[in-house]
Write a protein that binds this DNA or RNA. Structure first.
Length: 379
DNA sequence: GACCCGTGGCC
DNA sequence: TGGCCAAGGGT
């Protein structure tokens, strides 16, 4: 069997490079969006924006970014903040380890670099949560250093410019594009050029139905020349999320609700939520799994009614949730296990919950409104 | 390389 | 409706 040889990295000729640089930068100067992190070149502001933008759309990020910068205007302010506040500011954005890593790294910069973001690639790359792309983005945008910042946009644009069929899901492909980028990024305007590549990918060279007719570099694009732009980039399909039956408990004592902090590793690590168990096998009511688990924790409950069902899809899990009401048997003023907590409504508002739990809260609230004047309040 | 880690919007 | 995607990083 012969092993399939990888296509070599194309080496663009100088004429093509000069043309693409000029046209793309001219287009960017005219068409760049006025985004909040483009007000200046403060490395801290650039950094925060890049972390938030990881796997997240610009429109989603903007309001979070504004609030975050109001709360933590400087690197020092973020370094001195409590983690709980930082996570609260991230609530609803997802990928919460981004916020924890950012906080860790910012504290590291405060402690080891006098509060100034380092401008050398080795130091920046070592910061927690800063990988090859983000390091390149910070270094090029904030410090105008000629470093590649290859994200999904850039891979799509390059795939089309050179009509390359490499699988963009592979790490090796990204490295190939980084090498390619080094041939194209100009001296002097490295940051603008990297942003122009991404801006082109976001506005013109879009994943589906790219606007080739208005593309500033349509003459330089092999995919367009060959009419294969819709076929590129090549990307291996992701596995579908695995379905999982999950039970949430809505367990009240007086005006307080039982909360559980999730384990420090895995899905929604360290986040607050309702008591959560996986449903096991067997022909019993879903709530039984919850009752038994709580019993093991020394919390004795009587099952109430099913308050509702909801589905929440993560990247790799599909939670099919049954929300079950529970009534505490004896006054449980004794010791709760580590990470468990009776929270009043006021206390709940200070905690950060991922959206799957916020959906459940909303469900309870609706149900409460519906039943008011009919059965009174839920127990 | 494979898998894990959230969420929302779009067609 | 659902599959796909978004300025990725860590393990």
């Amino acid at each position: 069997m012969s092993r399939k040889r990888q296509d070599p990295v194309p080496v663009p000729n100088q004429k093509w490079v000069a043309s693409v640089r000029d046209k793309l930068l001219a287009w960017y100067d005219e068409n760049r969006r006025d985004l909040p992190w483009r007000k200046n070149k403060d490395p801290y502001r650039i950094w925060v924006s890049e972390i938030m933008l990881q796997q997240t759309r610009v429109d989603t990020v903007i309001p979070y970014y504004e609030r975050f910068m109001d709360a933590f205007p400087t690197l020092k302010a973020l370094a001195e903040a409590e983690e709980e506040q930082v996570i609260k500011a991230w609530e609803g954005l997802g990928y919460y380890s981004r916020a924890r890593n950012l906080h860790t790294a910012v504290k590291e910069v405060a402690a080891s670099y006098g509060g100034k973001v380092p401008s050398d690639p080795e130091a920046v790359s070592q910061l927690k949560g800063v990988g090859a792309y983000t390091a390149g983005a910070i270094l090029s945008i904030a410090f105008d250093r000629r470093v590649p910042a290859v994200d999904g946009n850039v891979m799509r644009v390059f795939s089309r410019w050179f009509a390359m069929q490499d699988d963009v899901a592979k790490l090796s492909t990204r490295k190939k594009f980084e090498e390619l980028a080094l041939h194209v990024i100009p001296e002097g305007r490295a940051g603008d050029f990297n942003q122009a590549l991404m801006e082109l990918g976001a506005l013109i060279c879009t994943p589906t139905s790219p606007s080739c007719d208005t593309c500033p570099v349509r003459e330089e694009c092999r995919a367009r020349e060959w009419g294969v732009q819709a076929e590129l980039p090549v990307k291996k399909k992701a596995k579908p999320p695995v379905p999982l039956q999950v039970i949430f408990g809505w367990i009240r004592q007086g005006d307080k609700v039982l909360l559980q902090r999730r384990p420090n590793e895995g899905l929604l690590a360290g986040m607050w939520g309702l008591p959560t168990v996986e449903a096991g096998k067997g022909e019993v009511a879903p709530g039984e799994f919850l009752r038994e688990e709580l019993c093991r924790k020394g919390i004795s409950i009587e099952l109430g009614s099913v308050l509702g069902e909801l589905e929440h899809v993560f990247s790799h899990r599909r939670w099919q949730v049954t929300l079950v009401e529970g009534k505490i048997k004896e006054q449980a003023d004794g010791n709760l296990p580590e990470g468990w907590y009776w929270a009043s409504e006021e206390e709940q508002e200070a905690l950060a919950f991922p959206n799957v739990y916020r959906k459940a809260f909303a469900m309870v609230r609706e149900r409460k409104n519906d039943s008011q004047g009919i059965q009174g309040r839920l127990f």
